[in-house]
Each structure stands twice: as C-alpha cells, then as structure tokens.
Amino acid sequence: MSNQIMRAALCATLTCAALGAAAPALAELGGAPTPAPAGAVSSSVNAAVVHAASGVASATSAASYTVTQTTFATGTIVREYVSAAGTVFGIAWNGPIMPNLPALLGSYFSQYDSARVAQRTANPGRGPLNVELPGLVVRSGGHMGAFSGQAWLPQSLPAGVSAADIQ
C-alpha cells in the first residue's frame, strides 16, 4: 500500500472519529428531551423560579423546569432546560468542541443558519454570533478549545424564567 493511500485511509479514519466525538445532542429545541448518547454522563435537577426582588424560590414554582446536564466524552457540556410540560425551551453549551447545532436546534436550525449567514455577510470575520429572531435567540462564541453558547425560545420560557437563567 502506498504512503498516499495510507495517509488517505488515516485521514478518513480520523475524520470519522472526530465526527463520532461530536455525538448528537440530547434533544432538539422545542421538542421532547431524549436520553443521553452512549459514553456521555448525564444528570438532572429540578429548578425553582427565584423571584428577583426577594431572591426566594416560590413554593408554587418548585418544579417549574428541569435542567439536564450531559458531559460528552469530548469534554463538551450541554444543558437542556425542559418545561414542566416536557418541552425543551432552552439549551446551553460550553467546552472544547462545538456541539452539533443542527441537532440541538432541530427545526429552528434553518432560521438560525439563514440569520447567521446574513450576519456574517454584513460583518465578515470572526467573533460571537448574536441571532435574535422573533421566536428564537441564539448566542454563540468562543475559539478553538473553548466554545460556549445559549439558545432559547422566548415564547416558551416558563413564567418567571428569563433568558439569564439559561447558562
């Protein structure tokens, strides 16, 4: 086998491994949560809405949403925010590898991608993305080895929950 063929085979293997490392995200925005993929560590916690004025959690909102945090083998952490009705209303991520945004954003990805392309066309270069559409907000930034971002559906935020809660 020639060196060129061996290099091509190695490159293909590494590409497949890299794509496999960026395993699908937990759930899609606006949909139901799904189990964590194999090799990921996941935990959930019920979150209460804390009233900003008093700093006290409301007894009536003791389980207004659930946060599920999954740590992938790559070190990337994805947190999904799930309403009491079982719908993912927000997602946040941070880590060395960008998560699979088409999987995270689901049916909202095409709206995000169009806005992203328009934003980059108007302002070429690098830098954080802040996409604010009527039914979708996505903030994403970072650099190789340190990515972070949030995405949420403003119309789906539970009562008393703000965008600042999605971290």
Results as ranks from 00 to 15, higher is better:
G31M: 06
S114T: 10
L105R: 06
V161T: 04
R120K: 14
V49C: 11
T76C: 02
Y65G: 03
T34P: 00
A36N: 01
L136A: 10
A73F: 03
Y112A: 06
L10F: 13
L157I: 00
V161L: 11
Q150K: 12
L105W: 08
A164E: 10
S64A: 15
V41L: 07
A21T: 15
R120W: 10
V161Y: 06
A40M: 01
A8Q: 15
R120L: 14
N3L: 13
L26M: 09
T87K: 13
I91P: 02
A53D: 14
A12F: 10
M1E: 12
T13V: 14
P37W: 08
A63Q: 13
A151C: 04
Y108R: 15
A85R: 09
S43A: 13
Q155Y: 07
T15D: 04
Y108S: 12
G31F: 05
T60L: 13
V50N: 08
T121M: 05
P24K: 02
A23Q: 09
I166L: 00
N130A: 10
A163D: 11
A159W: 08
R116A: 11
W152C: 00
A118Q: 14
V56R: 15
D113R: 10
Y108H: 15
A21M: 15
V67Y: 00
Y65T: 03
L105S: 06
A47V: 14
I5R: 14
G127F: 12
I77S: 08
A25L: 04
V88M: 05
A115W: 05
A48T: 12
A32F: 06
V78P: 01
I77T: 13
L101C: 06
L136P: 12
A47P: 00
T68A: 08
G141Q: 11
V56G: 03
L133C: 06
A22E: 08
D165E: 04
G160W: 10
A163W: 09
A151S: 09
G127N: 10
S54F: 05
G145K: 06
L19Q: 10
P35W: 07
N94I: 02
R120Q: 15
G20F: 11
L29H: 01
L129H: 06
C11S: 13
P96M: 02
G142N: 08
M144W: 08
I77R: 03
E28F: 05
T13Q: 11
A36D: 01
L157M: 05
D113M: 07
T121R: 00
G135P: 01
M6E: 15
